[in-house]
């Protein structure tokens, strides 16, 4: 069903999810966003890819968690001293939180990349800005091609035996050589591609884009729900509900009216997960048992 959903609805929903993640500092909100993002990614791409992404995520968070205390001396809970400099628990955990914000946003963009393939992007942008739509779709389509081509060139070099017994420095030089070959290849490809596209009339005025996506009742419901929930969560966050600070020491999380914003976020971020699971269950139920 998500594949058939109108791309504009999905873009709107993911836009709000990413915005809420970016502006929240509360660990509960961040945890909800991170877990929901991972869950959706896991459903869409499978466990193996998710584990690889989680590995990168952990490395990323660890790097920021180490870097933040180097620059920040704030916080009341002192862990240890390095010379004159104190390392505090607050600075460390603030680093972790910043890392989780970045990591969650990257995961949600991964979801966006899966859900909005290039013809969907052309469908969204094609109506009012055809040029930007074309450029975006080409740019997004090029990354996987580049990765495949990079591996091909690298394997060629390996096949020539240049890597055998090479020192660290010359290996780095070979990688640079691979990169430069890739760039030359891509520039050549771009010239060919643009010639092809203009031959097919891409730069003509009044060109329209074909899209097979319709705007149905389910799209309307999802659009209204995501607009209402997303805007209300952002407004309540702006009013100070679920606010949090790390310095001078962590704010005590109290279970008062701000519980509602956590609950709303939990519901909002898991809409697509629930839809997916529901579709799966329906499929299992309706499958013919003859």
């Amino acid at each position: 069903m998500i594949e058939k959903q109108n791309p504009i609805t999905i873009l709107c929903y993911l836009f709000f999810v990413i915005f809420i993640t970016m502006f929240s500092t509360n660990p509960i909100m961040l945890g909800i966003s991170f877990v929901s993002g991972i869950l959706l990614y896991c459903i869409l791409c499978g466990v193996k890819k998710t584990l690889v992404r989680l590995g990168y995520f952990i490395i990323f968070v660890a790097i920021i968690a180490i870097i933040n205390p180097i620059f920040s001396r704030q916080g009341m809970t002192q862990l240890f001293w390095i010379g004159e400099f104190v390392v505090t628990l607050e600075a460390l955990l603030n680093g972790v939180a910043i890392g989780v914000i970045f990591g969650s946003v990257i995961i949600w963009f991964g979801v966006l990349n899966v859900l909005l393939c290039s013809d969907k992007i052309i469908y969204i942008f094609g109506k009012f800005t055809p040029k930007i739509g074309t450029i975006l779709s080409i740019a997004l389509g090029l990354f996987p091609k580049y990765i495949v081509q990079y591996r091909k060139i690298d394997n060629n070099l390996k096949g020539l035996g240049l890597y055998d017994g090479a020192s660290f420095l010359s290996k780095v030089k070979l990688k640079m050589h691979t990169l430069s070959t890739l760039i030359t290849w891509s520039v050549e490809g771009a010239v060919l591609l643009s010639d092809n596209m203009s031959a097919r009339g891409y730069d003509l005025k009044g060109k329209r884009v074909y899209g097979k996506y319709t705007f149905g009742v389910a799209d309307g419901i999802l659009l209204i729900v995501s607009l209402a929930l997303g805007i209300s969560i952002l407004v309540f966050m702006g009013l100070g509900s679920g606010s949090f600070y790390y310095y001078p020491t962590f704010k005590q999380i109290v279970w008062d009216s701000s519980v509602w914003i956590y609950f709303a976020t939990l519901v909002f971020m898991n809409i697509l997960v629930v839809i997916n699971l529901w579709e799966g269950a329906k499929w299992q139920f309706l499958k013919s048992k003859i």
Partner: peptide, 10 residues
């Protein structure tokens, strides 16, 4: 004043 200063009675 920031909420953290007042909550922690600094």
């Amino acid at each position: 004043a920031e909420a953290g200063l007042i909550d922690n009675k600094l």
